[in-house]
Simulated scan of single mutants.
Amino acid sequence: MPARDQLLHLAAGDLRLALAPAVGGSIAAFSRVWREGGHERVLHWLRPASDEGLAQRHPLAMASFPLVPFCNRIRNGRASFEGREIRFPPNHPAEDSPHALHGIGWQRAWTLQSGGPGEAVLTLEVEAGPAWPWHFAAQQTYRLQPHALEVVIAVTNRDSVAMPAGIGHHPYFLHEPGTRLTTTTRAMWETDDEVMPTGLAETDVVRQLRQGALLADLHTDNNFTGWSRTARIDWPADAQGPARRLVLQAEPPLDRFVLYCQRGYEFFCAEPVSQCTDWLNLAGQYPAEDLGGSRLAPGQTLEARWRLTPSWD
């Protein structure tokens, strides 16, 4: 069956959402569809998945994918937590890196538990193993409303002992000429050449983002702490559509923010997350409020909600 035929489609008002349960429970597209001058117009709020990415089930080619049971990287895939050892093998599909990346959920097929015109629930069950020695379950609820997309992501500890956990999402936005991003954070994690954190600082990037940064001026792949849990993206009028904007809002524990914005790329990532890169190995060196992350007792659930609200002239 062709990959696009495996997508789940939701609709509400002018907004459309396509989900790819088999590709990491990912969003394949989030768009506005309307008629103008007798013709159908389509405007993408997220970078749409490519046919090749869908056919290859490549999560890095999706519009957004879930981060569970941790976000970002763990140095060399090695960490300890309350007597259990994490031995996560390299899992970056595009680079030769020793650092465990983005958890497990993005590289597994999810199960469609329920679906309707404007809502879908996807689930995932993962047994304990050497990479992640805890049994856990995860769930995503996608709700499409006429003026917004709401996503709830949750992870539940199914194991007999406490488990560390982090959750988030990894949306890709289109970087059109003139795109601006405005958000407030307290500090940025500076990094080494392998994108691993080396320290916190109130950098020029932090100050630029507070004022509304022109993304063409930035070159980042960094975590931020003390996030306001709100970010606004502004695109000027162009061939894609009218002047438009999108507000990303998150609820606790999504108190940290990741910005991936590389010069010359046609996309950027603005990610709501609950813990910083390598938080387990940095514990004790930095305040818990800067690191984030959660401890889940057996049977306990960590849940987070985030929302994308687009508008246009």
Rank of each mutant, 00 (worst) to 15 (best):
H135W: 00
I153H: 14
T185E: 01
E202A: 05
G115H: 12
A138Q: 10
P171W: 00
L124W: 09
N157W: 06
T198L: 14
R108P: 11
N222P: 00
H147K: 11
R186K: 08
A120Y: 04
E125K: 08
V161A: 07
H147Y: 14
D159T: 04
Y142S: 02
L214Q: 08
L218N: 00
W110I: 07
V121T: 10
L215Y: 01
T191P: 01
L218P: 00
H99D: 04
L200C: 05
W189F: 09
L124A: 03
P171S: 04
V152C: 14
P146N: 03
Q140T: 12
I167H: 14
E194R: 10
D221S: 12
V206T: 02
T184E: 10
V195T: 14
P146F: 06
P171C: 00
A201M: 06
G105A: 06
Y172S: 03
N222D: 00
T198G: 14
V151L: 03
A216V: 00
N223Y: 13
W132G: 04
E125W: 06
E150P: 10
H99R: 02
D159Q: 07
T141I: 07
V121C: 05
R186V: 02
L122F: 15
A128W: 00
H102W: 03
H135T: 12
T183L: 07
Y142C: 05
W134E: 02
P146Y: 06
W110M: 11
D204Y: 01
L215K: 04
D159K: 04
S114V: 01
T220Y: 13
R158W: 08
P197A: 10
T183R: 06
Q139S: 15
P197R: 15
M163L: 10
V205M: 06
T182H: 05
E194F: 02
P146V: 07
Q113A: 13
L101H: 09
R207N: 12
E176T: 01
R108H: 07
T184M: 09
G129F: 06
T111C: 06
T184V: 07
G118E: 15
S114T: 07
N222A: 02
A213F: 01
E176D: 03
Q211E: 03
I104F: 09
H169Y: 14
A148T: 15
I153L: 12
E127A: 15
M196A: 05
T183A: 05
R108Y: 04
G118P: 05
L209W: 04
G118V: 06
T198D: 13
R143V: 13
V206E: 01
H175M: 01
G178M: 00
H102K: 02
G105L: 02
E194S: 03
W106H: 05
R158D: 13
I104L: 08
F173A: 00
E119A: 11
N157L: 05
H147P: 09
W189C: 12
